[in-house]
Design a protein around this nucleic acid. Sequence first.
DNA 1: CGACATTATGACACCGGTGTCAGACGGGGA
DNA 2: TCCCCGTCTGACACCGGTGTCATAATGTCG
Lengths: 341, 341
Amino acid sequence: MKGKATSFDIAHYAGVSQSTVSRALRGSPLVNEETRRRVVEVARKLNYKVDKNASNLRAQQSSTLAVLLFEDPTSDESQINPFFLSMLGSITRACAKAGYDLLVSFQSSSNDWHADYAESHRADGIILLGYGDYMDYQSKFERLLESDTKFVCWGANVEGRPELTVSCDNSRGGALVAEHLIELGRTDCAFIGDTSHHSPEFSARFNGFAERLKAHGAHVSERKIATAISTEESGYQATKSLLANNIKFNALFGASDLIAIGAIRALQEAGLRVPHDVSVVGFDDLAVARFCTPPLSTVQQNTTLAGQMLVANLLNLIAKQGVDVASSVLPPQLIVRQSSK
Amino acid sequence: MKGKATSFDIAHYAGVSQSTVSRALRGSPLVNEETRRRVVEVARKLNYKVDKNASNLRAQQSSTLAVLLFEDPTSDESQINPFFLSMLGSITRACAKAGYDLLVSFQSSSNDWHADYAESHRADGIILLGYGDYMDYQSKFERLLESDTKFVCWGANVEGRPELTVSCDNSRGGALVAEHLIELGRTDCAFIGDTSHHSPEFSARFNGFAERLKAHGAHVSERKIATAISTEESGYQATKSLLANNIKFNALFGASDLIAIGAIRALQEAGLRVPHDVSVVGFDDLAVARFCTPPLSTVQQNTTLAGQMLVANLLNLIAKQGVDVASSVLPPQLIVRQSSK
DNA sequence: CGACATTATGACACCGGTGTCAGACGGGGA
DNA sequence: TCCCCGTCTGACACCGGTGTCATAATGTCG
């Protein structure tokens, strides 16, 4: 047998028509059980596999989802945010369970392909990760909506379409951190992250944090806020600049674990002890949080559940073409370790 | 316009035949420059995208590669080995650069789909990660070879086909660790990992390590070897069992960073100081190695280069159907940090 | 001005399945 | 015996492109 076997080959050897082969292999009730057995047996012997391209073409769908991971172009390209990688793992598993394949693509702002996967029929739907850090994300969303592309997004809100977003309750997470620091009596806080609308997740964390502090009579001074993207280096630099300006604080909230880890390095270099002089809390609960020095207190996001919901909501969207899907906001959980004792 | 535009729609509006549209959009020299401009313009206006399924079906290829990541079923399913994730990042980028899409799939030993992606024409070739830890990998390789599936593999050797493997020079990496410990005068070594053929990468690391020590008159006692898979917990347990048996050593080589990190935890719990009492060295240089307590000395594998070579070799294999591709063994690099000073 | 090469285009078969439709076949009831 | 119905199967159009072949239009040269 040259090349791969086709359904015509199977038909030939099983002594039936090609139509019957197709029906038999896909469990149609129209085919006689005895015939089916014969077809299945021949197919197995010839190691026959349905050609996905042909089947997708005819069926006008691809049984495939795509994940587009947006990377902040200002961050180091060689290191991918481990938080998204861990989400990727759970998305992959959820896809497999649903019988879908998963295409993975790393996007940078330079390319504009966001809808390509769907429009070229390579994927039935798209999952967006990291678009909260995308400068111009609302306009991207508009283009996706316009072309009727099925998509769901982690973190960033799609205006007027809450059902397209799965996110952590960032505001609540920030509040948990505030409560924890209040309990410790450490209310003179610095914040490293981003309070602007460019970064909806970081600013939600900050707002939840600041509001809860305020409710207790404390407040975060503008001077104690430094801007950083979600990398260790950026957190380090931002904290260093605070210290260089001789700004004092007894607690520090990093908008992500990577930022917090960088902040700890800057603090330690400046001779400050964590947590003795400064309590530090991060956000994400990356694996590394458990192992760093000192082990980092942080707010855990349930990436496993998040991945499952992204996939489930997207499939729902594809199946029901746009009917109501509930907004999905996941509860965060505070994990206290040595960095804030 | 209902639904997506097809090349016939473009043809209609541009006043040419469908054939010409196809040629024009794919840069055939057969079409008049003026005609091409018109076609391209109409296509852009109608937001036309080539249907990948149709094009793949006709061309009998998919412009897609698949990554199969094998997970040790005995390890915690929710946490994916960060080493492979980082490789995944560089593979994705290399694919994108070559104009290929990437399918990602996590395999467990229970499913037997290894060749499915290729045989169903979903992917032109397959990249195997983590198959060195696969109990029965040679038989899987045989099936892939038999079905003429194009594939390359990280780490594990395919018998008689060195061109299908890209790997780190694990033996040399082990030797680097040995040399480093010899310099420190720490030759009473423990090894945590796997010295059996079940884990070709770990055992190569061990062999390179042991041989170099032997050449210096030192030697690793059987009693100081404990078996572990590549997780923090497993490294912790293995080290704990050594200590429980009252086995002494002044250096420890963990076959991976995760193992070494678990080992450090076990040592510290037992009241041993790292590196004062025991020098610890790992393997991989995960991001976490820089941040753990104390920062971990380790052997760096160049995942960026590795990913690029896997993709390049695979594409080569697909293009030249089986002609010689050089075996690719990448040089490891010792990174000394506080854990072995 | 006719033979011939060159360029640009259209018609059409084809990739390998899926779904529809028509019809063969056997059995039961009138 | 004839008709009807349910069960099972085959023929065929179709999905949306790609590549081949034939041909029209234009230009070249003797």
